[in-house]
Design a protein around this nucleic acid. Structure first.
Lengths: 101, 101
DNA sequence: GCCAGATGTCAGCGATCGACGACATTGTAT
DNA sequence: ATACAATGTCGTCGATCGCTGACATCTGGC
């Protein structure tokens, strides 16, 4: 599953938790956070901390992988790869700035 | 690249940034965060926020994918899958508690 | 060696976090 | 319909965030 937004993460955590038959309280205990934190992260809270997030997804048996976007094959030339990444930066930042207004 | 800790993320961000020939200031401007935040996230700051993290990796053209751990094949039975996830939960939480003391 | 640029660190500020406890609301099994 | 479990929301508190601006230190090209 591709993760782009905090809401994506929240949905993933809730889905995984329910699939494992855990309630929020149990997951909170296993991770070592408050139940309220689980509630908030499942709602896609953007200012929740990375450390607790990683612990939570780890506790749910989820692996996070990062890779360059736009890589269909690992054999793309570095030049075209660099150009693609540069284009993505500008459009993504513009999109992020629109969200702030 | 497998992401397990905030330090993994920090290293990834720094690596990607330098490979794109960006300095911290430029990246900060593109993402819409302070340069200090870039400095801290690259050092693996665990309490940095998810929202800003996702924006930053997006700006660097990095895609995050989440998947169930231990899945070599998508055809594993749900029972054995559940048992594996349970074992992971306990050891991961114990490890997290050790870090807190 | 010199120096400009890049990175690292610090202090102060208003905003928010995450934990805790409590209460409200929803969901589910009988 | 009822009871109980699960989830959602609220208020409070000490801790920390992320920003700004400034200064310190490091790096690399000349």
């Amino acid at each position: 599953m591709r993760i782009r937004t905090p809401a994506d993460l929240g949905a993933l955590i809730r889905d995984s938790r329910t699939k494992l038959g855990l309630d929020q309280k149990s997951l909170a205990e296993k991770v070592g956070v408050s139940r309220q934190w689980i509630v908030e992260i499942e709602k896609g809270k953007s200012r929740a901390s990375i450390g607790l997030l990683l612990r939570t997804i780890g506790a749910l048996g989820i692996a996070l992988d990062a890779e360059k976007e736009g890589l269909g094959k690992p054999k793309d030339t570095s030049l075209s790869h660099g150009a693609d990444a540069h284009v993505d930066i500008d459009s993504i930042v513009a999109s992020a700035r629109r969200k702030r207004k």
